[in-house]
Amino acid sequence: MSKDAKEKATTMAESKEMAVREKKELVAKEEKTVPGRYFIPYADIYETDEVLAVVLEMPGVEKKDLDVGLENDVLRVDGRIDFSKYKEMEPVYAEYNVGHYARSFALSNTIDREKISANLEDGVLTLTLPKAKHAQPRKIAIA
């Protein structure tokens, strides 16, 4: 990276202010039978030679209230909030609305569907999507 590029990146990083990120409400094609608003959880996707890792923010969701399923090459995540925890609370200040979470991802043929795993810890869901053997890079021997 050139000296000018480094200075520009540093200036941009220093000039960024902390900002509240608004939740995006899910506009679903199908009706939901669970009452409450649904939001799209923020996601980061990381890739290595062996896996794709999808990290989703789902604060307030517990393991018992989380469904992750695969159907017709679509990975669906559905996290429900237990509203009884908030029944007696009156917020003094709130930066986001409380609601359920739903998101889906269309999978390519490079993902090994049999080895997909999920882990929920402290409101962060990590989906590990291993790549199929044919999609992983390999070293070719020279004869």
Rank of each mutant, 00 (worst) to 15 (best):
D112S: 08
A118H: 06
N119R: 13
I142V: 14
E88G: 04
L52A: 03
R21A: 09
E95F: 09
E30N: 06
I116A: 00
S15R: 10
L107N: 01
K23I: 02
E114Y: 04
S15H: 11
Y101A: 00
D4C: 00
I81C: 04
F83G: 02
V124S: 02
L125N: 01
T48F: 10
I81M: 07
A102D: 09
R103S: 10
G36I: 01
K63I: 00
L56F: 08
E22D: 12
A13S: 14
D112E: 14
L107M: 03
P59T: 01
N109K: 12
T128K: 09
L75K: 05
L56K: 00
S15T: 09
D4P: 00
P41D: 02
M1K: 05
L127W: 00
G60R: 00
K133Q: 13
E17R: 07
T11Q: 15
P41F: 02
K16S: 10
P59W: 02
K64F: 07
V92K: 12
E7Y: 09
K139W: 11
V34Y: 13
S2K: 03
P35H: 01
D44M: 10
K24F: 11
Y101S: 00
A94D: 14
L70C: 06
V51E: 14
S2I: 01
K85Q: 08
M58Y: 09
G60T: 01
G60S: 03
K29Q: 08
M1F: 12
H134S: 11
F83V: 09
Y101I: 02
E30H: 04
P35V: 05
E90R: 09
K23G: 03
E14H: 06
E90C: 04
I111D: 07
E14N: 11
K131E: 11
